[in-house]
Design a protein around this nucleic acid. Structure first.
Lengths: 326, 326
DNA sequence: CTGTTAGCGCTTTCAG
DNA sequence: CTGAAAGCGCTAACAG
C-alpha cells in the first residue's frame, strides 16, 4: 500500500480510502487506480479485518452439504450475502456432531462477523460466550439447544401431517414410517405430524410401524422386512428425510415392490423413479433469505429478543398410485 | 495474549510458544494452559497469518460441488489436509466460469498457503502473477490453460473408450453420445475416447449421433428425438458426464424407453434406476490424495518442473441388458 | 478531502 | 529455554 501511495504520489491512507470506496478527489482516485493496476497490488483482507474487527465474512455450518436442501440453502445464502458485500464460507460436519464445535472454534478464530448454523443434534451451550460477546448467530432447520438465538424453521409438523393425510385419504390405515432419530427437533416434529394425522383419522398408532433412523441400506431393508412380516403389514410408507428415502427405495427394489410412498425432503432425481416420489419440500429460498435477513439485522446491532420464523413446506405430488396394491 | 501472560506470570511471547506447541518449560506450560482455560482465550488466526505470512489454510475451487465426484474429492482433500494440520476452505463457482477469478482473488486476499483448482473452462493466465510470486497451486480434473502447474487427471480417454467398447461388444454399431462441451479438456478427451473405440472397431463416426452439452432436460429430449428420427437411429447411448446422464434418463423416460446406456461419472442413486446405470467412475480418493501430496510438496518449497499425475478410472457394471432392444 | 499517528494480535529476530 | 523490541498490512481517530 505504501508502494502504491508512492507511485501515485499520495499518502498511503488515501490508497486505503480508494480501496474502500470512500470519497477522494477524482484526480487522486485515478492516480491511485493506475498505480494499483501497474503494481498488481491486492489488499490484504486479513490485515484489514485485524484492525477493523470486521471481516465482512459470514460462516455457514451445515451437517450434510450433500443433502439437496442444505446445498440449495447454501447457494441462496451465498447469493443473498454477496449482494450485501459479504463473503460466505461453508463448512459441513458431514453428520459428525463433534465437528460442529471444531468448526465453530475455527470460525471464531477467523473473526467472522456472523454465523448461520444448521445444527446436528448436539447441544450448543459452548457457543454462549461468543454469543454474549456480540457474535451474531442465526440457527436454521433446528433450534439451538441450551442457547437463545434467532431461528428459522420449516413447518415440519404440518408438512409431515399433510403427507400422512394424503396416504390416509388414499385408503391406507397401516402406514410404515421411517423416522429421523427422535433425539432432535426435526425428528420429533415430523414424527409428531405423522401421529397427529393418525389421531385425527382415528387410526391407531403402532410403534412396530415406526423405524427410527436405519443407518444403512441394509438396516432399512431389515426394518422393512420386519414390518412386512407383521400380521397386518403396512400398505404405504413415509420417510422422514431424504437419506431415509434413498435407503428405502433401495429396500423396495430388493423386495421388488413399489408401494405408495411419500418422503419429507425433496431430492434430486426423485421425479425419475418409477413410480416418481411424491415429497414434502422445504422452501430453501425463503428459509435462506429469512436467515440472512435476521443475521444482517443482528450484525447491525439489533438486540431485541430472539425471534422464531416458520416457513411453510410445499407438497409436491408426483403421481404414482396412492391406492393400496390390492 | 497479554492478559493470559499476566495471568500466568510469564512474558506474552511464552504464551505464543505454548499456543504453537514450541518447547517451553513444563511449569510455564501448565500455568499458561490454566490461564488460557480460565480466560477463555482464543488465538486470532488472522493476526498470526498476517505476521507469519502463512495461514495454514488451503483453498479448493470447484465448479460444481453438487456433482458426486467433486463433493467426494472435497471430503477426501479436507481429511488429508486436516491430518497435516491444514484447514480447507471450499468455494464452488456453480458452473459460472466468471466466478473463478473472483474466488481466486478472494483466496489471495486471505493469503492462503495453497490452492487446488478444478477449473471451469475459462483460461487461467490471471493466476500467473501469484504463481510466480510463490503461491502453490495444483490443478485437478483439467489442466490449466495458459499456465504451468502440477495437475492430477483422470484417464478420461481410456475410461470413455472402455465404455464405448463395452457397448460395441454388446453388438451396437450406432451409439448416441451426449458429450460435454468440446471447448475443454475433459470434453475433448472423453469424446476422443468414444471416437478411438469406434475407430478400433471400424465403426464409422457419425456426428449426428453426437449431442454437445444439451443444457436442460428439454434440450436433451430434443437431441434424443433427433437421433431417434434418423434413418438408422442409435441402439445404445453414452453420456460424457453425470449431469448429462440425469437429463438423458429423464428424456428416456419421456419416451418410455430404456436403451442400453453407460455414463462417464458415477452419481448417487445410479444403481437404483431400472435398469441400473453402468458407469465409468473417477477415483476421487486417489485423485484427491495425489493433489494434496503435490500441493504439500510445493508448499514445502519444491521448485522442480510441474508434473502430471494420471489416475485410472473404474468401470462399474451394474447390469441391465446391453443387447439391442429388437 | 487529505495526511499523521497509533495500534489491531500475533510472530519474528535477536539478545539474554 | 525465555524475553524485549520491531513490525506484518491495514484502518481508526483525529488533526489539518
Amino acid at each position: 500500500m505504501i508502494d502504491v501511495a508512492r507511485e501515485a504520489g499520495v499518502a498511503f491512507k488515501t490508497v486505503s480510502r480508494v480501496v474502500n470506496g470512500e470519497p477522494v478527489r477524482r484526480e487522486s482516485l485515478e492516480r491511485v487506480d493506475a498505480a494499483i493496476a501497474k503494481l498488481g497490488y491486492r489488499r490484504n483482507i486479513g490485515a484489514a479485518s485485524l484492525r477493523s474487527g470486521r471481516s465482512r465474512t459470514v460462516g455457514l455450518l451445515v451437517y450434510e452439504i450433500s443433502e439437496s436442501f442444505q446445498l440449495s440453502l447454501a447457494q441462496i445464502v451465498e447469493a443473498a450475502l454477496a449482494e450485501k458485500g459479504y463473503r460466505l464460507v461453508v463448512a459441513s460436519t458431514m453428520g459428525l456432531g463433534e465437528r460442529e464445535a471444531e468448526f465453530f472454534e475455527s470460525f471464531c478464530a477467523n473473526n467472522f462477523d456472523g454465523l448461520i448454523v444448521l445444527p446436528s443434534t448436539v447441544e450448543q451451550s459452548y457457543m454462549r460466550p461468543e454469543l454474549e460477546a456480540g457474535v451474531s448467530i442465526v440457527f436454521v432447520d433446528r433450534p439451538p439447544k441450551n442457547l437463545e438465538t434467532d431461528v428459522v424453521l420449516a413447518e415440519n409438523r404440518e408438512g409431515m401431517r399433510h403427507a400422512t393425510e394424503y396416504l390416509i385419504a388414499g385408503g391406507h390405515r397401516r402406514i410404515g414410517f421411517f423416522s429421523l432419530k427422535l433425539d432432535n427437533y426435526t425428528g420429533v416434529e415430523r414424527h409428531g405430524g405423522y401421529r397427529d394425522a393418525l389421531d385425527a383419522a382415528a387410526v391407531s398408532y403402532d410403534e412396530r410401524l415406526v423405524s427410527e433412523w436405519p443407518e444403512t441400506r441394509q438396516q432399512a431393508l431389515e426394518a422393512l422386512d420386519a414390518m412386512l412380516a407383521l400380521p397386518s403389514p403396512p400398505t404405504a410408507f413415509l420417510s422422514g428425510a431424504s437419506p431415509l428415502a434413498k435407503r428405502l427405495l433401495w429396500a423396495f427394489r430388493q423386495r421388488k415392490i413399489t408401494p405408495p410412498f411419500v418422503s419429507y425432503d425433496d431430492f434430486e432425481l426423485a421425479d425419475l423413479f418409477e413410480p416418481p416420489v411424491t415429497v414434502v419440500s422445504q422452501d430453501s429460498r425463503r428459509m435462506g433469505l429469512a436467515a440472512v435477513d435476521l443475521l444482517l439485522q443482528r450484525m447491525q446491532g439489533d438486540t431485541t429478543p430472539p425471534r422464531v420464523v416458520r416457513i411453510p413446506t410445499h407438497f409436491i405430488e408426483r403421481g404414482g398410485s396412492i391406492m393400496p396394491e390390492a
